[in-house]
Amino acid sequence: MRYSIFSAACMASGSSAARFMLHMPATQLLNPSTLLSTTHATLQASGAPVDAHLTRSNSFNFNNVSAGSYLATVHCRDYVFEPLRIDVSMEETVEGSGELKEVVRAWQTFVGNEWDNKGESRGEGSNGLVIEVKPLAPKYYYNERSGFAPLSFLKSPMILMALFSMVLIFGMPYLMENMDPETKAEFEEMQKKSPLSSGTNPAQQLQNFDLASWMAGKTETGVSSRGQSPAPQSKKRS
């Protein structure tokens, strides 16, 4: 494993200290000069993370970083930044020369993925390497309230239903009047046969409507349907 080689190299060299810089370039998404001074970057490996404040030149300086594999995170109030994997190692400049030099490598990394699952390389070099960090997205903290919009109001099914029934109530009499007498008679015949308005005047029915008994489910159909329905479960469902 690459990482164990690093740690072995670290042991061998005793103390090594690399120096690199995370830099935020100006992009269309972000003008880094507008970021708050509380923006900071951390390098986490083992123990307390190394912390670096945002500098005037929109960068985070890390000095004296010992060899190892680090998770670099930029913490910012207004933007999400991609996490990076930064490996610091001591390597021979020329094979067999014995001369060790710090090498810094940076890749993308992904939360919830294996550490060896590296993304795109974000830079490789010796001391003083500048690694660019890019913002992924601005952070939106607030929920929008759905305000009053006439169009969405009209789109709602309740309003559509109401409008439809309005059209029926007001439009039907005119339709009936405009019908020729034969079809009208036929229509009335049909209405009489239909179970909905069997015998009585619907208006009269409406006037004599007993709300209390209806709510108590007194009609025969209501009782039968209740008996069949799995009542307790349907209550739980609600």
Binding site: V111, A137, Y141, Y142, N143
Partner: peptide, 25 residues
């Protein structure tokens, strides 16, 4: 991008009660 996808997933996964802008402060 995988991270973006994950972010979008996390966002749609839990429509938690966030702070409303007019409630904030």
């Amino acid at each position: 991008m995988r991270f973006d996808a994950a972010l979008a997933l996390a966002a749609c996964l839990a429509p938690a009660a966030a702070v409303f802008e007019d409630d904030a402060h």
